[in-house]
Protein backbone atom coordinates (compact mmCIF):
# COMPACT_ATOMS: atom_id res chain seq x y z
CA UNK A 1 0.00 0.00 0.00
CA UNK A 2 2.54 2.54 -1.10
CA UNK A 3 1.83 5.73 -2.89
CA UNK A 4 3.56 5.49 -6.25
CA UNK A 5 3.38 5.73 -10.03
CA UNK A 6 0.22 3.62 -10.06
CA UNK A 7 -1.49 6.90 -9.21
CA UNK A 8 -0.22 8.51 -12.41
CA UNK A 9 -1.04 5.44 -14.44
CA UNK A 10 -4.57 5.46 -13.12
CA UNK A 11 -5.03 9.14 -14.03
CA UNK A 12 -3.90 8.42 -17.60
CA UNK A 13 -6.09 5.31 -17.86
CA UNK A 14 -9.09 7.22 -16.54
CA UNK A 15 -8.49 10.05 -19.00
CA UNK A 16 -8.30 7.63 -21.93
CA UNK A 17 -11.45 5.78 -20.88
CA UNK A 18 -13.36 9.03 -20.42
CA UNK A 19 -12.22 10.22 -23.85
CA UNK A 20 -13.21 6.91 -25.43
CA UNK A 21 -16.58 6.93 -23.73
CA UNK A 22 -17.32 10.53 -24.71
CA UNK A 23 -16.22 9.93 -28.28
CA UNK A 24 -17.48 6.49 -29.22
CA UNK A 25 -19.91 5.21 -26.60
CA UNK A 26 -22.09 8.00 -25.32
CA UNK A 27 -23.18 9.80 -28.52
CA UNK A 28 -24.62 6.76 -30.37
CA UNK A 29 -26.37 5.46 -27.27
CA UNK A 30 -27.98 8.72 -26.21
CA UNK A 31 -28.68 9.50 -29.87
CA UNK A 32 -30.57 6.25 -30.29
CA UNK A 33 -32.49 6.83 -27.07
CA UNK A 34 -33.44 10.36 -27.98
CA UNK A 35 -34.40 9.38 -31.51
CA UNK A 36 -36.63 6.64 -30.17
CA UNK A 37 -38.18 9.03 -27.68
CA UNK A 38 -38.93 11.40 -30.53
CA UNK A 39 -40.39 8.58 -32.60
CA UNK A 40 -42.64 7.52 -29.77
CA UNK A 41 -43.70 11.11 -29.13
CA UNK A 42 -44.49 11.51 -32.83
CA UNK A 43 -46.42 8.26 -32.82
CA UNK A 44 -48.46 9.34 -29.83
CA UNK A 45 -49.06 12.70 -31.47
CA UNK A 46 -50.32 11.16 -34.69
CA UNK A 47 -52.48 8.74 -32.72
CA UNK A 48 -53.96 11.73 -30.94
CA UNK A 49 -54.50 13.47 -34.24
CA UNK A 50 -56.13 10.38 -35.72
CA UNK A 51 -58.44 10.11 -32.74
CA UNK A 52 -59.37 13.75 -33.14
CA UNK A 53 -59.96 13.25 -36.89
CA UNK A 54 -62.14 10.26 -36.15
CA UNK A 55 -64.15 12.26 -33.68
CA UNK A 56 -64.56 15.04 -36.18
CA UNK A 57 -65.64 12.59 -38.89
CA UNK A 58 -68.13 11.01 -36.54
CA UNK A 59 -69.45 14.41 -35.65
CA UNK A 60 -69.78 15.27 -39.34
CA UNK A 61 -71.50 12.00 -40.08
CA UNK A 62 -73.96 12.55 -37.27
CA UNK A 63 -74.66 16.04 -38.52
CA UNK A 64 -75.21 14.84 -42.09
CA UNK A 65 -77.50 12.09 -40.86
CA UNK A 66 -79.48 14.61 -38.85
CA UNK A 67 -79.78 16.83 -41.92
CA UNK A 68 -80.83 13.91 -44.05
CA UNK A 69 -83.47 12.97 -41.51
CA UNK A 70 -84.83 16.49 -41.44
CA UNK A 71 -84.88 16.60 -45.21
CA UNK A 72 -86.58 13.25 -45.41
CA UNK A 73 -89.16 14.39 -42.92
CA UNK A 74 -89.77 17.54 -44.97
CA UNK A 75 -90.15 15.54 -48.15
CA UNK A 76 -92.50 13.14 -46.46
CA UNK A 77 -94.59 15.97 -45.11
CA UNK A 78 -94.74 17.59 -48.50
CA UNK A 79 -95.78 14.33 -50.08
CA UNK A 80 -98.47 13.85 -47.48
CA UNK A 81 -99.74 17.33 -48.07
CA UNK A 82 -99.75 16.76 -51.77
CA UNK A 83 -101.61 13.49 -51.40
CA UNK A 84 -104.17 15.14 -49.15
CA UNK A 85 -104.62 17.88 -51.67
CA UNK A 86 -105.03 15.38 -54.49
CA UNK A 87 -107.65 13.56 -52.48
CA UNK A 88 -109.36 16.84 -51.67
CA UNK A 89 -109.30 17.88 -55.30
CA UNK A 90 -110.65 14.54 -56.34
CA UNK A 91 -113.39 14.77 -53.76
CA UNK A 92 -114.33 18.25 -54.90
CA UNK A 93 -114.37 17.21 -58.52
CA UNK A 94 -116.42 14.18 -57.73
CA UNK A 95 -118.83 16.30 -55.80
CA UNK A 96 -119.13 18.76 -58.65
CA UNK A 97 -119.51 15.97 -61.14
CA UNK A 98 -122.17 14.38 -58.98
CA UNK A 99 -123.96 17.69 -58.66
CA UNK A 100 -123.77 18.16 -62.38
CA UNK A 101 -125.13 14.71 -63.03
CA UNK A 102 -127.90 15.24 -60.54
CA UNK A 103 -128.73 18.56 -62.13
CA UNK A 104 -128.74 16.98 -65.57
CA UNK A 105 -130.98 14.20 -64.38
CA UNK A 106 -133.26 16.70 -62.67
CA UNK A 107 -133.60 18.75 -65.81
CA UNK A 108 -134.33 15.58 -67.78
CA UNK A 109 -136.96 14.63 -65.29
CA UNK A 110 -138.44 18.17 -65.44
CA UNK A 111 -138.51 17.99 -69.16
CA UNK A 112 -140.24 14.62 -69.01
CA UNK A 113 -142.69 15.96 -66.51
CA UNK A 114 -143.40 18.98 -68.66
CA UNK A 115 -143.84 16.83 -71.69
CA UNK A 116 -146.11 14.51 -69.80
CA UNK A 117 -148.03 17.45 -68.41
CA UNK A 118 -148.38 18.88 -71.93
CA UNK A 119 -149.57 15.59 -73.24
CA UNK A 120 -151.90 15.19 -70.32
CA UNK A 121 -153.28 18.64 -70.91
CA UNK A 122 -153.81 17.78 -74.53
CA UNK A 123 -155.54 14.61 -73.65
CA UNK A 124 -157.62 16.22 -70.97
CA UNK A 125 -158.81 18.90 -73.34
CA UNK A 126 -159.69 16.27 -75.89
CA UNK A 127 -161.42 14.16 -73.30
CA UNK A 128 -163.22 17.14 -71.88
CA UNK A 129 -164.32 18.11 -75.33
CA UNK A 130 -165.50 14.64 -76.08
CA UNK A 131 -167.24 14.48 -72.74
CA UNK A 132 -168.91 17.79 -73.21
CA UNK A 133 -170.03 16.73 -76.70
CA UNK A 134 -171.59 13.70 -75.31
CA UNK A 135 -173.22 15.57 -72.51
CA UNK A 136 -174.63 18.24 -74.73
CA UNK A 137 -175.39 15.85 -77.52
CA UNK A 138 -174.52 18.52 -79.78
CA UNK A 139 -171.81 19.25 -81.92
CA UNK A 140 -169.58 21.76 -80.56
CA UNK A 141 -167.77 23.71 -83.01
CA UNK A 142 -164.30 23.00 -82.24
CA UNK A 143 -163.16 26.14 -83.73
CA UNK A 144 -165.69 28.15 -81.87
CA UNK A 145 -164.81 26.85 -78.50
CA UNK A 146 -161.17 26.23 -78.88
CA UNK A 147 -160.49 29.38 -77.01
CA UNK A 148 -162.48 28.17 -74.09
CA UNK A 149 -160.86 24.80 -74.22
CA UNK A 150 -157.38 26.23 -74.28
CA UNK A 151 -158.26 28.21 -71.19
CA UNK A 152 -159.41 25.10 -69.50
CA UNK A 153 -156.37 23.15 -70.48
CA UNK A 154 -154.15 25.92 -69.14
CA UNK A 155 -155.87 25.67 -65.81
CA UNK A 156 -155.01 22.01 -65.49
Amino acid sequence: MNFNLTFVGQIIAFAIFVWFCAKFVWPPLIGAIEERQKKIADGLDSADRAAKDLELAQHNATKKMQEAKVEAAAILEQANKRAAQIVDDAKLEAKQEGARLVAAAQSEVDKEINMAREELRQRVSELTLAGAEKILQTEIDEKKHSELLDKLAAEL
Binding site: M1, F3, N4, F7, I11
Partner: peptide, 8 residues
Protein backbone atom coordinates in the same frame (compact mmCIF):
# COMPACT_ATOMS: atom_id res chain seq x y z
CA UNK B 1 -5.56 0.34 -3.71
CA UNK B 2 -5.51 4.03 -2.69
CA UNK B 3 -3.39 4.83 -5.75
CA UNK B 4 -6.29 3.81 -7.97
CA UNK B 5 -9.03 5.66 -6.14
CA UNK B 6 -6.94 8.76 -5.57
CA UNK B 7 -5.81 8.64 -9.19
CA UNK B 8 -9.43 8.74 -10.31
Amino acid sequence: DPNVTLGM
